[in-house]
Design a protein around this nucleic acid. Structure first.
Ligand SMILES: [Mn+2]
Ligand SMILES: [Mn+2]
Ligand SMILES: [Zn+2]
Ligand SMILES: [Zn+2]
Lengths: 136, 136
DNA sequence: AATAAGAATAGTAATCATTATTAATTTTAT
DNA sequence: ATAAAATTAATAATGATTACTATTCTTATT
């Protein structure tokens, strides 16, 4: 059968990182992944998580979402969708906006940017952070 | 006349940083501002630029735009508009999308996020970076 | 103008997320 | 079995940003 899917990747840790990203809605940080997989691989190092995330990025198997709140977040869902990002805590939630194809194309012409697979993120404030009056 | 506009801020450097941001379409980085104002204030230090940018942010006189490419960028245009951001070099260009008010509200209800003054950025690839084959 | 109190600064050190290095280990190919 | 290639843990380095501090500049008060 499909040998392409049979391709054996000799890095079981990389496999698990990708798998973890594919089976969560969390849009995790590198630390989250590290803490999670340390139970599975007690000798895991944070550098390995970062290095493999970078490899997966280069292979275009995942994407990054930057937030005003420190840590980068990662997503293995490559389907066309957008993100709401909390500018205080960095939490990311998937959303779906129907993007007008033609107006996107107009944007490309106007700006000179290629928006082939545009990453759109809307930053706001999540409920937790809104209610958190610890420091407004 | 309007005394509110007469309020004298005793930090001439802070004033110039804000002024610079208000009179450029560049969405500059801290470094850009530093290099620019060093001609005017030869003793300027980069720390002062960062500190004043943070103060202006706290005062909500400017906003930050994060990019995949290292440096943060700043914008003193607080009118409702959006940004296209190059994921390679970080260049930022203003755009205007007419956001459906009601669908934004629906997003708020669905996600629990408050999107009162949402910052929307679309990441793509600018023309320069697209043509730059130095390292694809 | 002299003086004191507060604000801002330059210069420098510290922080923190991420990336690079390296020597050792593991996997694959021969 | 052996050699080449890939991966790793541990650690050091990087780079953007922030914090600290002693000094200088502003403003208010005499
Ligand atoms: Mn997602
Ligand atoms: Mn703008
Ligand atoms: Zn939040
Ligand atoms: Zn670019």
């Amino acid at each position: 059968m499909k040998t392409v899917n049979m391709k054996r990747n000799h890095s079981i840790k990389r496999d698990r990182i990708l798998e973890l990203l594919q089976t969560t809605l969390e849009h995790p940080t590198a630390d989250w992944i590290y803490e999670r997989l340390k139970k599975e691989f007690p000798d895991l190092s944070l550098g390995t998580v970062y290095r493999n995330l970078r490899i997966l990025l280069d292979e275009k198997k995942i994407i990054t979402i930057r937030s005003a709140a420190g840590h980068d977040r990662f997503d293995a869902d490559l389907s066309s969708h957008q993100h709401v990002v909390c500018e205080k805590c960095g939490k990311v939630v998937d959303i779906l906006m129907n993007l007008d194809k033609s107006s996107l194309h107009r944007l490309e012409e106007k700006t000179g940017f290629s928006l082939a697979s545009p990453r759109i993120s809307i930053s706001g404030l999540c409920r937790d952070c809104r209610l958190d009056k610890s420091e407004s």
